[in-house]
Amino acid sequence: MSHLLTNYYEAASVILFGIGFMNLLLQNNLIKKFIGLNIMDTATYLFLAAKGYVFGRVAPILTNGIIDKDYYINPIPAGLVLTGIVVSVSVTAFSLALVLRLYKHYNSLNMDEILRMMREEEGE
């Protein structure tokens, strides 16, 4: 329990991840489904950002001539977050484009309903 309190950022991000994951899995509304995907991805960025920041240190940009590794933070987690954001933006854009086309064809955002309509059409 005390671990959870000291690592509250990580705990929060894992809880957020769970919320996002369950939304992606269980939501029937496609827009909500992909919002779930975004919550899930953002949660991992919170995790990485929290892991990457060390209290009292600064970003590794040499401005006042201090060459001491204990003065700076590790920039790699921030780099990973940036890469991850690029990936999740493109996945979201792609998925929303798909949802748009689905809506045009089926006039619905409900995945179950769409699957039912598809089966009915195939059954004909």
Binding site: L24, L30, L37, M40, L98, R101, L102, M111, M118
Partner: peptide, 17 residues
Amino acid sequence: IVGTTHYLVFGCMGSGL
């Protein structure tokens, strides 16, 4: 399109984990 959406949702869950 339905097949792709289905596949994408599963794909996203896998890569998220």
